[in-house]
Design a protein around this nucleic acid. Structure first.
Lengths: 190, 190
DNA sequence: CGGTTATTTGATTATGCTCAAGGGTTGTGG
DNA sequence: CCACAACCCTTGAGCATAATCAAATAACCG
């Protein structure tokens, strides 16, 4: 699975063989079975986590027990809770596996160390945050201005592949509606 | 007004006098009167824009003519459309002044040039994007899981000062509800 | 299989929107 | 300084969208 990580890294910047080796020496593979937690609310998150295979979700659970999915992370994405990572405070999020997954973990301090030593890595992370911000911004825009049906249409258009591998009730939760509502919307689309 | 910008810069990193001078040489002051546009939908955005005083809003207008406010930028914040800046594509956003405001503008290419020459500036921008991402993420979380009343409560708690200077119909639009709904919520809070 | 989990459907309810109107405030030009 | 126009906020009545509750399949997994 490290080869997938390596392939990803090389697609993002021209790391030297030595740098790759350094990064991989700090990496730990973690396999997760469907439904297994990577992070539970209340724990402190202290890693950088690259998804090598599978799919994870980040979500909160409200007072009524309803889940609200903040994002999905499929292969070649990153996941984790940056806020908790940086503040050292317990996370308010849960992260678990939607499918059997493989994650590459690098401890926070080790990652910071690497980041200082390897300029390309530093820039890669900056670019990542940059793009994450744009994606988040776009999501806010759809969430505050679209109706339930429009949200679903936009979701299908933006992430057509997700609709096939992610259970519908999770898509509903990601879009901020109930399973029943999504089911009815789908009926009316065909 | 440049002094406010300088003060901000120095609060973020230890710029040398020469660096500050370089930055300010590339800066242009733009005064905006209430309601005046900084960017209109369809234009290409090509600046970095620091708000020295006042308050601006970024918003879209939907098919029915309703406005949806993506964010506010008050003094010591930045504004603009990164997406348009980077892609060179026309912006889908409007940005205008909520109050009489002063903005420091630096042209895209000049800014990139400065960014390459001044490491502290580069890092400042990275930190800014980083924090913007966290803020955006937090906003998504509230938007997808809170009721209208909860959204307003959270808004008051997070930005108490905004409630005083921003017209209610804009707060409503920012929160993704109608003015009438916000008005009724406020009635019930007292 | 048997049991859990996921999806669909229907009936009812509630939250928030639309439409319409009134009053208050602010700003501007005569 | 006044008059008129913008704009802003509030209130009410009716409506629409989506949530809730309940139940019946359907799909998935051990």
């Amino acid at each position: 699975m490290f080869d997938l990580f390596e392939k990803y890294l090389l697609s993002k910047a021209a790391f030297t063989a030595g740098e790759l080796q350094q990064i991989e020496a700090a990496s730990v593979l973690r396999k997760l079975r469907k439904r297994q937690f990577l992070l539970q609310e209340g724990e402190v998150w202290a890693y950088y986590a690259f998804v090598a295979s599978g799919c994870l979700r980040t979500y909160t659970v409200d007072a009524k027990g309803a889940e609200h999915i903040l994002n999905f992370a499929v292969e070649n994405w990153w996941t984790g809770d940056l806020q908790s990572l940086e503040s050292g405070q317990p996370s308010g999020y849960n992260i678990d596996a939607v499918e059997d997954s493989t994650v590459v973990l690098i401890k926070h301090e080790q990652f910071e160390h690497l980041r200082q030593q390897i300029p390309a890595l530093h820039e890669m992370v900056n670019g990542l945050l940059h793009r994450s911000f744009l994606v988040a911004q776009a999501r806010i825009q759809t969430v505050i201005s679209y109706s339930a049906e429009e949200k679903y249409r936009a979701f299908l258009q933006q992430y057509p592949a997700f609709a096939l591998r992610i259970p519908q009730h999770m898509v509903a939760s990601y879009l901020g509606m109930t399973t029943e509502t999504l089911s009815r919307i789908r009926r009316n689309l065909v």
